[in-house]
Amino acid sequence: MLSFQTALTFFGFSLVLGLSPGPDNIFVLMQSATQGRKAGMLVVLGLCTGLVVHTLAIALGLAAVFAASAMAFLILKVLGAAYLAYLAWGAFWAPVSEDTSITATQLQTRQLYLRGVIMNLTNPKVVFFFLAFLPQFVSADRGSVAMQLIELGAVFIVATIIAFGSISYFAATAGQRLRSSARAQRWMNRTAAVVFAGLAVKLALSQR
Rank of each mutant, 00 (worst) to 15 (best):
S3T: 15
T6A: 15
F11M: 11
F11N: 05
G12D: 00
S14D: 02
S14T: 08
V16S: 06
L17E: 09
S20Q: 11
S20Y: 13
G22K: 13
G22F: 11
P23V: 07
D24T: 12
V28F: 10
Q31G: 11
Q31M: 15
G36Q: 05
G36M: 05
R37L: 15
K38D: 12
K38A: 14
L42A: 04
V44A: 09
G46Y: 03
L51E: 04
V52F: 12
L56K: 07
A59K: 07
L62K: 08
A63W: 01
A63L: 14
F66N: 02
F66I: 06
F66K: 04
A67F: 03
A70N: 09
A81N: 04
A81D: 00
Y83F: 14
L87K: 06
G90A: 07
V96N: 09
E98G: 12
T100N: 13
T100M: 13
T100A: 14
T105H: 13
T105C: 14
T109F: 12
R110W: 10
Q111A: 15
L112T: 00
L114I: 13
L114Q: 10
M119G: 08
M119Y: 09
L121H: 01
P124L: 07
V126L: 10
F129N: 08
F133S: 03
F133P: 02
L134I: 11
L134D: 00
P135H: 06
A140K: 09
G143C: 09
S144R: 11
A146H: 07
A146G: 05
A146Y: 05
E151I: 00
G153N: 04
A154W: 05
A154F: 11
T160V: 05
F164P: 03
S166F: 10
I167Y: 02
F170D: 01
A172N: 01
A174Y: 13
Q176P: 06
R179K: 11
R179D: 00
S181F: 06
A182D: 09
A193E: 02
A193Q: 04
F196S: 00
G198D: 00
L199D: 00
L203R: 07
Q207V: 11
